[in-house]
Write a protein that binds this DNA or RNA. Sequence first.
DNA 1: TTCAACCTAACGACCGGTCGGTAGTTCCCA
DNA 2: TGGGAACTACCGACCGGTCGTTAGGTTGAA
Lengths: 197, 197
Amino acid sequence: MAPQNMKQTIKSVAIDLFSRKGYFATSISEIARGSGIQKASIYYHYESKEDLLFHILKTTMDDLIAYVRRSIQDVTDVETRMRRAVRSHVHFHLERQKENFISNSELRGITPEHYQMIVDKRDEYERIFQDLIREGAEAGVFLTKDIKIVSYAILTICTAGAAWYNDQGRLSIDRIAMIYEDFIIDGLKGKHRFPPE
Amino acid sequence: MAPQNMKQTIKSVAIDLFSRKGYFATSISEIARGSGIQKASIYYHYESKEDLLFHILKTTMDDLIAYVRRSIQDVTDVETRMRRAVRSHVHFHLERQKENFISNSELRGITPEHYQMIVDKRDEYERIFQDLIREGAEAGVFLTKDIKIVSYAILTICTAGAAWYNDQGRLSIDRIAMIYEDFIIDGLKGKHRFPPE
DNA sequence: TTCAACCTAACGACCGGTCGGTAGTTCCCA
DNA sequence: TGGGAACTACCGACCGGTCGTTAGGTTGAA
């Protein structure tokens, strides 16, 4: 195994195990076995088990934010921007299913400082969608809703996909993204029976 | 502590700890400490740590199914039925936040046999919503969508609420339920830009 | 000769679970 | 009415095993 790759190998083995068994249920020995080295050697590449988890969470969040930002940067029409954002959100989550699943279930494994860093990144990410909802509402394209709640709804619909999506399954990532896109845009445009007071 | 209550005490302490720290990160000793007894005494009430988790998951699922079924049983109009189902789903998840959070994150802690039992119950529950979507589509009230995907979308929107809902927060359970209700019904009624092939 | 990249061996802490035991209560039957 | 068996609800001590982590040694390429 080439030297520069071992750090990556450990990371991808950890991603696989953390997503399948969970962070606490996965031992350093297992990660080492999967990587073809002794468990003590893990500590040459990562400071601790928590450091390994944090690395996974951090790079996933950074990549996600960059990915979605890029997908909407040169579009002005707000409905299209939202469609693009939803689509790229879905794509990212289904293509990097395991990492995203970890990001949404293993937050409790990291230290308070690291936790704050990840939460800050997540807030930054959510703001992309919240701004789009606000933009659309101000333009009269979407009907004003509770922006926070609706943004959570949008994100969790797609994020949850990472929990059940099966790449051998009936539907392609594209197809799923389209269904979500339609559902969300209709939800955003629909009038409410219970208007905000 | 009255004798009959200790089993319940242990259970509710476990619910609190499992939801806050996770199943694997919680030790029997901690549960015992929280319950005011020695850890050996836990084993008088529950066979094992896994048995305790399974008990929590099972009763939560049973209660959930019964609760939602009851809420729609004497209503015939399909939109109203869906609205009721969504509303009771949200209510149940936010009122019994911790248990539901565990139900959606600690499935990996149980044995294969128990896992199958819980998954069967969850399938049964999802079928309630899938039948409603089908009903509504056949009646022409909803536009036909991919029933499975859309049912997952509906359920996860609300379920995710259990992860972030704060009973000290800005919004009441009722208010959140209404927002979701509107969003979902609009999503179900909207026409699709990407029709199923 | 240096140094990155690994190794073996061991550490203390803690894990879930079991053991024998023991107050206190209930119940049966002579 | 009384005595003992059985049962409930708990305890303290302990088990083998695994955990994350560290100290220190080895290897091979540059």
